[in-house]
Lab assay of single mutants.
Amino acid sequence: NQASVVANQLIPISTALTLVMMRSEVVTPVGIPAEDIPRLVSMTVNRAVPLGTTLMPDMVKGYA
């Protein structure tokens, strides 16, 4: 089972991601792979991401 990136807090729309905002967790459905966390830092989300939500590729500008 692959770990995915999960929001560690509410991430408001257009917020630049930082390490403290994300954690890795094995979830269903599978989202962005946890090993991509370093790549996600400073990318922005294009929607509000509630606490505990799995980050999907279409939620992060420039990721997909």
Rank of each mutant, 00 (worst) to 15 (best):
M59C: 05
T54F: 03
L40I: 10
Y63A: 03
I32G: 02
L51G: 13
M43H: 07
P29R: 04
L40S: 00
V26I: 12
E25K: 07
M59E: 02
A16P: 15
S4N: 02
Q2D: 15
S24W: 09
V60P: 01
L40A: 00
A16F: 08
L55H: 02
A7C: 04
L55Y: 01
A64R: 10
I32W: 02
A16T: 09
A34P: 06
A16N: 07
V6Y: 02
T18C: 05
P12D: 09
S14E: 12
T44P: 06
V41L: 13
A16Q: 09
P33V: 07
R47P: 02
S42F: 08
M21E: 00
G31N: 01
L40H: 00
V60K: 01
T54D: 01
V45D: 00
V30G: 08
T28F: 10
P12W: 04
T28G: 05
V5C: 06
Q2A: 13
D58I: 09
P12V: 04
L51I: 15
V30C: 07
P29I: 06
A64V: 11
G31M: 02
G62Q: 10
L17D: 01
T53V: 15
M21P: 00
K61P: 14
T15N: 04
D36M: 13
N1M: 15
L17M: 07
R39G: 08
L17C: 03
R39L: 10
V6H: 01
M59P: 01
M22V: 06
V45N: 01
T15R: 07
A3D: 06
T28A: 14
Q9H: 12
P57R: 09
M43P: 00
V30H: 15
D36L: 10
V20A: 14
S24D: 07
M22D: 00
V30M: 14
N1S: 15
I13D: 14
N1F: 14
M43D: 01
M43G: 02
A64P: 11
D58Q: 10
D36H: 13
T53H: 15
S14T: 10
L55P: 01
I11F: 03
G52P: 01
Y63G: 04
S14R: 12
V45L: 11
I13C: 15
L10D: 15
V60H: 02
T28P: 01
V60R: 01
A3Q: 09
S24K: 09
L55I: 14
N1R: 05
I11G: 02
N46A: 06
V6T: 06
T18Y: 03
M21Y: 04
A3K: 08
P29E: 05
I32V: 06
D36I: 07
A16R: 12
P29Y: 04
T44A: 09
V49A: 05
M43E: 04
R47S: 09
T18H: 04
M56H: 06
V60L: 08
T15L: 05
P12A: 10
T54Q: 03
Q2Y: 12
M56E: 08
V5T: 07
A7R: 01
M59D: 13
V30A: 11
L19G: 07
R39T: 11
P12F: 05
L55T: 01
L40Q: 00
T44K: 11
P12I: 04
A48G: 08
P29S: 04
T15M: 08
A3G: 13
V6D: 00
A16V: 12
A64Q: 14
S4C: 06
R23T: 06
L55S: 02
T44Q: 10
R23P: 01
M22C: 03
A64C: 15
A48V: 15
K61D: 12
R23H: 05
E35I: 11
V6L: 08
Q2C: 12
M43W: 07
L51M: 15
N1K: 08
N1P: 15
P33D: 05
E35P: 08
T15C: 06
V5F: 03
V49S: 01
R23K: 12
P50W: 08
A16G: 07
S4G: 04
P50T: 09
V41F: 05
T44R: 14
V5W: 03
K61Q: 13
V6A: 02
L10M: 10
S42T: 14
G62W: 08
R39M: 11
A3N: 08
G62F: 09
I37G: 04
G62E: 09
Q2N: 14
A34I: 07
P33Y: 10
Y63P: 04
E25R: 07
I37F: 02
P50D: 15
L17T: 00
V41Y: 04
V26S: 10
K61L: 15
P50C: 08
P38Q: 10
V26C: 12
I37H: 02
R23D: 04
T18M: 06
D58W: 14
V60D: 00
G52I: 03
L17F: 03
R23W: 03
A48E: 13
A7F: 03
G62A: 11
T28L: 09
L10K: 11
D58F: 11
I13G: 15
V27C: 06
K61H: 11
M22H: 00
T44M: 13
A3H: 12
P29D: 05
I13S: 12
V30L: 14
L55A: 02
T44I: 12
P57C: 07
V20W: 14
A16L: 09
E25V: 09
A16S: 11
D58G: 11
D36E: 15
P38D: 08
L55W: 02
P50K: 13
A34M: 09
Y63N: 04
Y63D: 03
S42D: 11
L55V: 09
E35Q: 13
M59G: 02
V41I: 14
V27Y: 02
R23E: 04
Q9T: 15
T53F: 13
L17H: 00
Y63T: 03
M59Y: 14
R47K: 12
T28R: 05
Y63V: 04
A34K: 06
P50I: 05
Q9Y: 10
P50N: 11
V26L: 14
R39A: 08
A7Q: 01
L19W: 13
V27F: 03
S4W: 03
S42R: 11
T54Y: 03
P33I: 09
G31F: 03
T15E: 07
P57Q: 07
A3M: 12
S14P: 02
E35F: 09
L17K: 00
M43F: 15
R47T: 10
T44G: 04
V45M: 07
Q9P: 01
V27S: 05
V5G: 01
A34N: 06
E35H: 12
P50L: 10
V49E: 02
M22R: 00
D58K: 08
E25G: 09
S42N: 10
S24R: 10
E25H: 08
A7P: 01
R47L: 06
L10T: 10
V45T: 13
M43R: 07
D58H: 09
P12S: 06
T18P: 00
S4M: 02
